[in-house]
Design a protein around this nucleic acid. Structure first.
Lengths: 166, 166
DNA sequence: TAATCAATGTAATAAAATAACAAGTCAACC
DNA sequence: GGTTGACTTGTTATTTTATTACATTGATTA
């Protein structure tokens, strides 16, 4: 089961996205309930927006959608909801894109690496725990303690490669 | 010799920084000459600024320094010089910081991982070729081709840890 | 029910990055 | 030596991304 969800190409490959979304939402509800954190309407809606596709969305893109649906229209509205989701492991921040994406396996694995297709902008999350470990060892030798690790790869996904995108 | 320069803690540990700078500049000159790319005054000065410390500098910090020395005072001046250095492998862009840093071993290794101390903001470059390879294999299995990889770890360096920084 | 704390909303601003265009510099060539 | 053409620098203006500060609302609990 973990295997099923952590397959690197999951997001790029065709899959039952309805269920993919529903699962993620359910996990979110459970996790937040357990932590006594509140999945308020804006926060929930923000997560839903991120889950719509496997693309990363900019904060302002999220904001626009939220505003159109009657939520606040100022940047902090989006940034706060996104930050909340990130803090609770339900979304990730992509440094290379100044953007955010829903976490695809919030239940397990907490050291993801991202594969970002530069053509379709979809992204996949692959387990990177072992990368963290390896790098962790190497840096510990030098007295450096890793607290957070960002691994982001930009490239070309199978679909776009096949479609002949340069 | 490669060993000497790629030691992970190089930047954090005390070292002959004068020479460290001089070496980097010399390598830069050679490399650019070989490529027939021009190390103009702004570009050279920008590299020198980045080499002053082992910290990453924001584009606007660089700009301010350049402007104070009589160069142009508008953002493109800094961004262009920095982009040039990055393109030629003489500097790196740190996604997590919106900042730039001089490349510490431009002669070899082209898949660096960064260790960024969140207290003193110094950073070290460690070889990550093997990380790239491992991740590359994993993603290739799924048809994804990595073009550029970003590995940035934020944490605490030995010095700051010892100094009791939280 | 009053007091408190978390969450939302807005206005204003800061910080980071890019686009578009004019002017200058430099090397190579005739 | 002068001219062409590519590269480099500079400026103005604008866009994109992110934060600060403060008022207001809503939920929680003592």
């Amino acid at each position: 089961m973990t295997q099923e969800r952590t397959g690197a190409g999951a997001a790029f490959a065709p899959h039952d996205h309805q269920r993919c979304q529903a699962d993620a939402l359910q996990v979110a509800e459970q996790r937040l309930a357990a932590k006594k954190a509140r999945l308020t309407p804006v926060r929930r809606r923000t997560l839903e927006l991120l889950l719509e596709s496997h693309r990363a969305m900019g904060a302002y893109e999220v904001l626009e959608r939220l505003a159109a649906e009657g939520y606040g229209s100022q940047p902090p509205v989006a940034y706060r909801a996104l930050e909340f989701l990130v803090q609770h492991g339900l979304a990730h921040r992509l440094q290379r894109l100044n953007a955010f994406a829903a976490c695809l396996h919030p239940e397990c694995e907490h050291a993801p690496a991202f594969l970002i297709c530069r053509v379709c902008s979809k992204l996949a999350e692959v387990p990177a725990g072992y990368l963290q470990d390896e790098l962790g060892e190497l840096s510990q030798d030098n007295g450096f303690t890793i607290e957070r690790l960002t691994v982001e790869a930009v490239g070309l996904c199978a679909g776009c490669a096949k479609a002949g995108a340069a």
